[in-house]
Design a protein around this nucleic acid. Structure first.
Lengths: 305, 305
DNA sequence: TTGAAAGCGCTAACAA
DNA sequence: TTGTTAGCGCTTTCAA
């Protein structure tokens, strides 16, 4: 069958005709809402299956009061976004919402991704779900200081989301441990290569006893360079990431990292979006979650010097 | 403004009324098709901007003959898929097609991803764009054998896409180099951890002179374990991946890998899909591209023994 | 439990 | 160049 679509796909009307009922009734049946007898229900369903009827979401969207669509923009090379997206699917589908993904890529600006989404879902209200970045850094510094580390370097996230909060959180936590003099921030970024670049700098001058990176991707790049430079982790240097992405959980990496619990964040975000769409009251506009630390294999007490 | 959507977003009708023209004319103007005077065009556009009109893609989709939508399913944790998706966006948007992503996750079967897509885009014709897997493996084996390697192990992809073709290609290439006796396939898989597991096996028994993995993710896991085990790459062992994903190009990895040219594949796929939708003839149903080898830093001549 | 009718916001013939 | 008129396939009152 080429060219395609030589025959028009079956519509509600087709099902209705064959079943000898009205379109409205078929609509009721296929949506599974009350209002049809079991006998009719079964017959309609059979016929629908027989002729291969599939609801047309375009029409459904247009006719329905609400679109039941949740738009999501994400970067495809970002493990944390993948985790969030997975959580969003998991939370949205049971609620009867469909998820529409729109990617941000090197060539595709966030603005563009959002625009195409807005053409389908027109609500512009904004809620924010985030974790307390400063608290996350604090957990990491507490953990490292507790192990006995003093030279704890932060490879930062530059202008990345949450980067400045994490920087400040790191500074404050160091101060509270009396490690003011050991505070050191090395310029990093969001990608593996940013972490790798920072690692080269650190390796050259003899690595610090611990490094706390802006995110897991950064940590991955840093780890790689360290290992190649003969710097053993965690024997020579401890490393802590941020995000607790699937990458951090890889058995061969076992990265100690600050967990934002993407699944929970995603579920909350969906819940709020749905609440807004269904005109419920949304109490707080911003929800700040408490992160926790996932201690794995890249941190240990410093070697005695 | 909470709850949202207290006011209905402006429609074509609203613009038409304010401009004192018909809906059809406004439609012509906003789509940028010929059929309106410059004066009208400008006035309509101004008013549209003023009241914040945005076309409703649901209605557009329903009314238009064709949806101008291209559905894409992908796994979010798969760098090669990310590369393909990026290529698809790049190819589709200039042609006036919108891309709809649908993710396959651990909890979300491919079937489900495809179903939600089919509700929007109903054509079921199938074209295939792929690279010649056997030829790719051949390139890799040629390269390694040319450097002087004999013990070339293949960490395979199990039941992954193309895995059996790659296995066979590897076997044949080894045979043609007279390396029958050195042919060895270690069970792998598609993920980093699969590569890492294979690496542990290989490291324990003393690593071979070269390893050719099913894909880049596999190679990444393998590399990590090797490096930690003190096996230097490429000094002790050469490693070749497959896919040439962005990961392979990371400056700190510089993985030698078989390139499938995702961008080109994506462009061809879009081109074909569009051709089908626009009822052009599609000559071949299957297009098999020639891979090439991206030689980077993980391969070198074997150390003299 | 069922059906009739209106309409979602737009596009595309066609007529003026 | 502009406007009129039908739909696209579905949901949703409202009556029967």
């Amino acid at each position: 069958m080429s060219p395609v679509d030589a025959v028009r796909p079956p519509t509600l009307e087709d099902v209705a005709q064959r079943a000898g009922v009205s379109r409205a009734l078929v609509s009721i049946v296929v949506r599974g809402v009350p209002g049809a007898s079991d006998a009719t229900r079964q017959r309609v369903l059979e016929i629908a299956a027989e002729i291969g009827y599939r609801p047309d979401s375009r029409a459904r969207l247009l006719a329905g009061r609400r679109s039941r669509l949740i738009g999501v923009t994400l970067a495809l090379n970002h493990p944390f976004h993948a985790d969030l997206a997975e959580g969003i699917y998991a939370a949205a589908e049971p609620l009867g919402y469909e998820v529409v993904l729109s990617a941000v890529t090197a060539q595709r600006e966030p603005r563009q991704a959002i625009d195409t989404l807005l053409e389908r879902a027109r609500s512009r209200a904004v809620d924010v779900i985030r974790t307390a970045d400063a608290a996350g850094m604090r957990l990491a510094v507490d953990h490292l200081a507790g192990l006995g580390h003093r030279d704890i370097v932060h490879v930062d996230g530059n202008r990345g989301p949450g980067a400045s909060d994490r920087r400040n959180g790191y500074r404050r936590a160091m101060r509270q441990h009396g490690l003011d003099d050991h505070t050191r921030i090395v310029s990093g970024g969001q990608s593996e290569e940013d972490g790798a670049a920072a690692a080269r700098t650190l390796a050259d001058e003899g690595p610090p006893s611990a490094v706390l990176t802006y995110n897991d991707r950064c940590a991955v790049g840093l780890l790689d360079v360290f290992v190649r430079a003969g710097i053993a982790v965690p024997d020579d240097t401890s490393v802590v990431g941020y995000d607790d992405t699937q990458v951090a959980r890889l058995p061969y990496l076992r990265l100690t990292t600050v967990s934002q619990d993407a699944e929970h964040m995603a579920a909350l975000a969906v819940q709020r979006a749905v609440a807004r769409l269904e005109h419920d009251e949304v109490a707080q506009r911003e929800l700040v979650l408490t992160p926790h630390l996932a201690v794995r294999g890249t941190t240990a007490a410093p070697r005695r010097r």
